[in-house]
Write a protein that binds this DNA or RNA. Structure first.
Lengths: 339, 339
DNA sequence: GTTAGCACTCACTGACGCAGAGTGCTAAAA
DNA sequence: TTTTAGCACTCTGCGTCAGTGAGTGCTAAC
């Protein structure tokens, strides 16, 4: 594999990323600045096509990179440069305000989509040690109780729970005191397990009071434990790209975004990997994202990976710019969460 | 204005709603069952066109209803029938689970979009008397405090607030005790006003402790007061309608949905009106919704209007079916909130 | 008031041709 | 051996053109 051929491939991919049109031999000959004739370029192109790095959509069109072409481009042909000072500065200021995890996640995905003009997606942080801090049970009406659970990370979960019987305020206070005494400082997962055991024991001993208290706590703890959620922003940016622009295609994509399930599944697979990951076209393994690329990276708090964030865009995205931006956003989000 | 002409108009609108194609005299002649020739129908059509109730897109096309045509159809030509038992039953069961206002709102908008195949939108309930019930201030880290406010409606608001100085847990407890004593049972709006006054007075007397406590409370109370929010579901349904199907058009619409501001503004205007409101085409006054219709109604808790809900779809929507569904959804939501 | 007849208009479709872009191949030049 | 010029060829895209079908408006007869 020729040095020059690689140079041509690089020029071709860059050109195609720029204007989205198949690139012909004449254009490419000018682009590279090597002062070669179009005919020569054609020969090289034919080689690249044999190698499966480019294709032409039809006989008399220019060439377009294949997935393998993009892959080679991204792996070996690109030198990553840090994002522009301006971009970093504007990101940094927007992360300035201290607030809760949820808002930070939302900010991050908005920033990602804003700065890349793609769709930004951020997973909620998953704290390995999510610690029970305090529970509060409040009477709301005849048969409804408001349960509030506060974890050590400052997350607040609340649920309204319908009950079979009426609880007096003092009964609820007693119950919450009991729960707080028992569980404060323990891992949420642990708490859930122990609550289930308690519930079993209480059933056995027919301790109505206990049953109810444990059942109430159970519900809100369950809510706190399943923290699988993500934010997606800037979906509409994807409508601007001609290659995705069939209405049907976009609808499927948006429906998937709304469901979130598939997206979460994909992100989940990235959490194990180190550093920035790039899935080009069908590499992601999801038919939905066939002509999309996904750039993700993990973010960490206290040196532990807690989540994934990234962007979704057409395969024809400006990797050179996008990848460093995703990387730096992850760092900034991590810093903001660490506070 | 002829009785028969109205009959024709009705048939025409119904037909157009069904297949979205301009309706010709031949088709209409068959549709009405009056056994008249196409020529006669043409005469009537010409009259309707003079009255501005229908137009033909071009010389040799059939007729399409104008906004005025739809308006007449909706106001005088339609008899509202209750929604099908099946629809109501499926709605009712989905509202069955008791939970907090936010989830109910979300459910409602999902149901609306699901059952009508349009975009569903629901405003958060606005309680006129949103009463301060309890505040909790918890230390989170060096200079961050978690503030939790619970209102009488069982809504929980929490914010993480960055502070200039360190607070000991007991200081925070003292502050929250003070705030609870002062404000429990009072209207949130009132509380906010009084907090501002307190803050002023505290500044005058240089009471640092007070200043900080009031400032903390202030933030979370502010968050609780501005309850302007809404849920929009099923946006992608709108992509299925040919008449809105230019990508650019849809993008604008979706961007507006994401912004929410304009949508909230429109819904706000509906809150004063009684019963179901229908805005056809440009009647809404928003260029964005030019070829969309908006069907809204208010929902009430304890005989007080607290919010608005409805659907957004193309002008060519099945009003006969949609309007009763919006109506019944509002009732069901109200019932679910009342529990 | 209703209808038949007729001329007319307009969108849509498919055929045709043509220009433009780009290719592959071959043979000559470097 | 590599590069280039030349040439035939193949597509797409665009505009033109005629034919068809759907539908209209008008007029005159029923």
């Amino acid at each position: 594999m020729n040095e020059r051929a690689l140079h041509f491939l690089k020029a071709l991919v860059e050109r195609y990323i720029r204007d989205g049109q198949p690139v012909g031999s004449r254009t490419l000959a000018k682009d590279t600045g090597l002062d070669l004739s179009p005919a020569t370029v054609r020969n090289v192109m034919a080689d690249l096509e044999d190698l499966g790095l480019v294709v032409s959509p039809h006989t008399s069109a220019g060439r377009v990179p294949t997935v393998a072409g993009y892959r080679l481009f991204v792996n070996s042909l690109l030198t990553w440069t840090p994002p522009s000072e301006d971009d970093v500065a504007s990101l940094r200021t927007r992360f300035g305000v201290k607030c809760d995890a949820k808002s930070l996640i939302e900010t991050a995905s908005n920033l990602l989509s804003g700065v890349t003009h793609l769709a930004g997606v951020v997973m909620m942080p998953r704290h390995e040690h999510n610690v029970f801090r305090q529970i509060e049970l409040l009477p709301l009406s005849e048969k409804r109780v408001l349960a509030i659970l506060i974890t050590s990370e400052g997350e607040v979960h609340n649920r309204i729970i319908g009950t079979d019987r009426y609880f007096t305020p003092s009964q609820l206070e007693q119950a919450s005191n009991y729960l707080n005494q028992m569980f404060t400082g323990q891992d949420i997962g642990e708490v859930r397990k122990r609550l289930l055991e308690d519930l079993k024991r209480a059933y056995a001993s027919m301790d109505q009071q206990m049953i109810q208290a444990a059942a109430l706590a159970q519900e809100v703890v369950a809510a706190a434990e399943q923290r699988d959620d993500c934010f997606i922003a800037g979906q509409t940016n994807l409508m601007e790209f001609g290659e995705l622009a069939s209405m049907e295609r976009i609808k499927q994509l948006f429906d998937a975004f709304n469901q979130k399930r598939e997206i979460l599944h994909i992100l989940d697979r990235c959490i194990a990997a180190e550093g920035v990951q790039i899935f080009i076209g069908r590499e992601s393994g999801y038919a939905l994202l066939d002509d999309c690329s996904l750039v993700t990276t993990t973010y960490r708090v206290d040196d532990r990976v807690v989540g994934v964030l990234g962007v979704i865009g057409p395969t024809r995205m400006d990797y050179q710019r996008v990848v460093p931006l995703v990387d730096v956003t992850a760092r900034l989000l991590a810093a903001a969460l660490r506070q």
